[in-house]
């Protein structure tokens, strides 16, 4: 059996699943709109937590938060289920498919057969939609893929019950009730306000202060960690910023697209200007990545080169600090 489901590729999996599930129910909401209303944009640096033997850098909020905030702000109710028993998880999934209800699933990437080998790390917060089943093969709309794909029932069980940080535990979710008309205006304002607050928070772990903190640390890396580790850390920043899912520039371009769309809906010329500035900030992040790649490509650890990328990050931090103050005033 197969549900008539329209697949549209997105940059990021969570936005994409939300956008595609909403379209299925007759509400056209773009990926940037989901991301902006859900206040997805962030920067965070957690040096005491290690992933792939390097500190955690993230350009977005924690998994699941975008959908929760989006749903709350536009008045959609979501049902979420987690399972201990894989058999029950499969049964509940099949029940929903039989009722013509496509569902979102949280899965681990490591055992995902259609993903390129190089991208299969133990990352457990990937999202996809299941829209049908034929003889033990599930039909999958994975938002980061260009087209729909399939997965066997044994592989699906593996990815739904991946272990480690953010273990999905079979997590399945779908919207259950909708407002008559989506009230985007209020939701956009709320989303922007929260992002401004998060990005300018007075603690060093998140926002522009965290960017500044990373810059400060980068200067010390070559001496403190040695060439190899310093380059590995730098590579981790670039990967988190540009790897599949960010749409380029650590989500800054998606956010600029959101501001442009919001400017039209709210009839606010200032947001249009700010969208342009966010694009320039995204370009600055790309320049930083390019410069950083020159360091780890040559496997060099000249302190000068590290200072140069640190300078770039500091400039970004200062610019974003001013930017989010302006954005707050603009709405």
């Amino acid at each position: 059996m197969q549900i008539d489901f329209s697949h549209k590729q997105s940059a990021h999996c969570e936005n994409g699943v939300v956008s595609n599930l909403m379209r299925h129910r007759g509400f056209e909401v773009s990926e940037p709109m989901v991301f902006g209303i859900g206040s997805g944009l962030l920067f965070s640096y957690l040096p005491f937590l290690k992933v792939n033997h390097a500190p955690v850098f993230t350009y977005r909020v924690m998994p699941g938060i975008i959908f929760n905030r989006f749903a709350k702000r536009v008045g959609v109710k979501i049902k979420r289920e987690k399972f201990k028993d894989p058999k029950v998880a499969k049964m509940r999934l099949d029940e929903n498919l039989a009722k013509n209800n496509p569902v979102g699933l949280q899965v681990g990437v490591y055992h995902l057969p259609y993903f390129p080998e190089e991208y299969r790390f133990h990352f457990n917060a990937h999202n996809m939609v299941v829209y049908g089943q034929e003889n033990g093969t599930y039909l999958i709309s994975d938002p980061v893929m260009e087209t729909v794909t399939t997965i066997s029932d044994t592989d699906l069980e593996k990815v739904r019950f991946a272990k480690g940080a953010f273990a999905p535990k079979g997590h399945m979710y779908y919207p259950i009730s909708f407002p008559e008309k989506l009230n985007l205006e209020k939701a956009i304002v709320k989303g922007i306000k929260q992002t401004c607050k998060d990005m300018t928070a007075p603690i060093p772990l998140v926002g522009v202060k965290a960017i500044y903190w990373v810059a400060k640390n980068i200067r010390k890396w070559p001496k403190k960690l040695g060439t190899k580790k310093a380059n590995h850390y730098l590579g981790q920043i670039v990967r988190m910023q540009e790897e599949i899912g960010t749409g380029g520039g650590g989500f800054r371009y998606i956010y600029a697209a959101f501001l442009q769309e919001a400017a039209k809906i709210l009839n606010n010329e200032k947001l249009k200007e700010l969208s342009k500035e966010m694009t320039e900030i995204g370009d600055q992040w790309r320049d930083f990545a390019l410069e950083a790649s020159r360091i780890y490509k040559n496997r060099s650890a000249q302190t000068d080169a590290y200072n140069k990328v640190a300078d770039q990050l500091e400039a970004i931090s200062q610019r974003e600090a001013v930017f989010f103050k302006k954005l707050k005033k603009a709405i």
Partner: peptide, 30 residues
Amino acid sequence: ELCYAVDENGEYTTENSTGWDPKTIALDNA
């Protein structure tokens, strides 16, 4: 993968990308 970019009129649109060297090198190194 999908990237966000602006067209000639300054409007946001999406474009597929086959890859970008700075991140390919980062991934290869990892």
